[in-house]
Design a protein around this nucleic acid. Structure first.
Length: 567
RNA sequence: GCCCCCGUAGCGCAAUUGGAUAGCGCAACGGACUUCUAAUCCGUAGGUUGUGAGUUCGAAUCUCACCGGGGGUGCCA
């Protein structure tokens, strides 16, 4: 069950019709109907459920008071099943109030939709690729990447719900000098373990995990790699090490309930000739210049040129060739042309914001529509322990791994905390607070609502009632029941909002509000009553809480969280 | 030097993207369990949205300047 129009869109359509009809009827002079009609949920009950200030904007063109325009328009807004009343409020709002009957009747609709509740057709099957995490495979996943992982995965889920055909991809940076340093780091540790002195590379990776890898090698292969030519050994060990790290990355992310459809290796862009194809294109169209022992990408929409590749001669082995921008351009070409995605979404830390114009400009240079590139830049995570900031970097060898954190607090609190804030704000991750399992942690508030419903349904069964009864929705008339349903029917709009604005944090706000309305309802209305006169009401309310449970589970699952039956 | 992000109640953050009376959670204070899980609910208190101008019917939101905090970038030029 997929909704083709969200409530917001339906209301916009009604008002649009009103705007057209009022002119056709000659009640207002001719004017151009705006293609975007602002509609927002009302913040006060006296304003109905949704309101639109569209007539305020028309006051100037029509030289009339907004309230008069609103009245004239409102008179031409057609009837709709879900609308009880269209009201005009000063200074010129058009407010729409939902019909209570209609709201109650949405309960079985939600139940019928089940885990599909909230799905919309916004994306119209467009193929969208979300590339995220893509951390260098030269070490384990850190907490810094956790925000990326959660944002990317959740956004991908939101896109799926919004009707896109989604691919989750991890880009493996397995070419270039970092990889060589990684291999050399392993070799040096390996040699040391075997009692052979070998200097540690200047830009090597000092973390303990490298020594662990080296030990593994010693155990498995003995001194084999010392017998090889050291270049060959480094090369072999780099490939082996990266494979080993990727296994760990995949595993760690799985613990956070993040997984990928595809893993694209940077090296394969060279092996498949995509890199050469792209360079060829750029050369032909004159975007490439060579000077100072480097190849530059030159474009009028960049203030400065950007380094494409460090050495002008095309060296066959990408590991010997620090490439800067070039791989990224080949990769865009791969995404949008060779593999035919309609859109490519990049989830990047704000420290990469400088790369955005370069990639955009390069995409334009190879003839791609920049609108197809979507960048989500999030502010970085700072980690606190005991009130003190923990600096992290793989090259310093000091960091807190995702694995450690997940083992300690579980995936749900991490996911919720990473999602709560907008991407624009820096995230302070307080390890002490994350560990704390108390009501200071809003995660449990939402999950508890789900658990409570599960408890009620179990209780119903114990009392000999059928928890899956179909009741009469018309009996659901209590204000707290209707408030809960109002929130339930808003989910499709929340999904649209999150997808359009690349803002998955709306899900956490929504989940908390939904849970709050359930808790209020729970206090004000007894669900299971064994009184003879309450038989029908009990059925109706069991049906309502079951639907509420469906919506809570849906939004929790969209966020990649568990919807527990017990806590 | 230039670029990006942030500044909203004591603290941490929202505000459907320019709309009505700026919300939520912690923390504080006062209430509610012989009841389907109190990890809950109800109430009280807390604000010149960093400062100053501008844009307009209307600004937390857009523009400019300044003040604070964070991050990027500057070898060619």
């Amino acid at each position: 069950m997929v909704q083709t129009m969200t409530l917001r869109e339906q209301i916009a359509a009604l008002i649009k019709t009103g705007l057209e009809q009022v002119q056709a009827a000659g009640d207002l002079p001719a004017f151009e109907v705006p293609d975007f009609i602002p509609i927002a949920p009302s913040r006060h009950d006296s304003h109905g459920d949704y309101g639109s200030p569209v007539c305020m904007g028309l006051a100037r063109v029509l030289h009339k008071a907004p309230i008069q325009i609103a009245k004239a328009v409102a008179a031409h807004i057609p009837q709709a099943e879900f609308v009880e009343q269209v009201e005009v409020a000063p200074p010129g709002y058009i407010n729409v109030k939902f019909s209570a009957d209609w709201l109650a009747r949405q309960v079985p609709v939600v139940l019928a939709a089940g885990e599909c509740w909230g799905n919309i057709t916004l994306g119209q099957g467009e193929r969208i690729q979300v590339e995220f995490v893509s951390a260098n495979p030269t070490g384990p996943i850190t907490i810094g990447s956790a925000r990326n992982a959660v944002l990317g995965d959740t956004l991908a889920s939101v896109f799926e719900a919004a009707g896109y055909d989604v691919t989750r991809e991890y880009y493996v940076n397995d070419a270039g000098s970092k990889v060589r340093n990684f291999g050399a780091s392993i070799l040096s540790r390996y040699a040391n373990l075997l009692g052979v002195d070998m200097p540690f590379p200047e830009k090597g990776y000092p973390g303990d995990y490298v020594t662990v890898l080296a030990q593994e090698l010693v155990d498995a292969r003995g001194p084999h790699y010392l017998e090889l030519d050291s270049d060959a050994a480094v090369r072999e060990l780099a490939v082996w090490g990266i494979d080993r790290m990727l296994e760990g990355v995949q595993d760690d992310l799985a613990q956070l309930r993040v997984s990928f459809d595809t893993w694209r290796h940077e090296k394969s862009l060279y092996a498949e000739g995509i890199f050469d194809e792209m360079m060829q294109k750029l050369r032909e169209s004159g975007y490439v210049v060579e000077h100072d022992d480097a190849v530059w990408f030159r474009s009028d929409d960049l203030e400065k040129d950007a380094v494409l590749i460090r050495s002008p001669q095309v060296i066959p082995d990408p590991e010997d060739r620090p490439t800067y921008l070039a791989s990224d351009i080949a990769y865009v070409w791969d995404k949008l042309t060779l593999r035919g995605f309609d859109k490519a979404v990049y989830i990047w830390g704000a420290d990469h914001h400088g790369d955005v114009p370069r990639v955009q400009s390069a995409a334009r240079a190879i003839g791609l529509d920049v609108e197809r590139l979507v960048f989500v830049l999030y502010q970085l995570v700072t980690l606190r322990r005991g009130g003190e900031e923990v600096r992290m970097s793989k090259s310093s060898g000091e960091f807190v791994t995702l694995r450690e954190l997940v083992d300690e607090v579980g995936p749900d609190p991490i996911r919720f905390m990473m999602l709560t804030r907008t991407v624009d704000v820096k995230l302070d991750f307080d390890l002490d607070l994350a560990v704390e399992q108390s009501d200071r942690n809003p995660v449990y508030y939402v999950q508890y609502a789900h658990t409570r419903i599960a408890g009620v349904l179990r209780k119903a069964e114990e009392e000999g009632l059928d928890p899956f009864v179909t009741g009469d929705p018309a009996l659901l008339t209590h204000p707290s029941e209707l408030a809960l349903i109002r929130k339930m029917v808003a989910l499709p709009d929340i999904i649209a909002l999150s997808a359009e604005n690349l803002a998955p944090h709306h899900l956490t706000t929504y989940a908390s509000e939904l849970a709050a309305l359930f808790h209020v309802f729970y206090h004000e209305c007894r669900i299971i009553s064994l009184d003879e006169g309450d038989v029908e009401l009990t059925k109706a309310r069991l049906m309502l809480v079951r639907a509420a449970k469906v919506v809570l589970a849906r939004v929790l699952h969209l966020m990649g969280m568990d919807a527990p039956e017990r806590m």
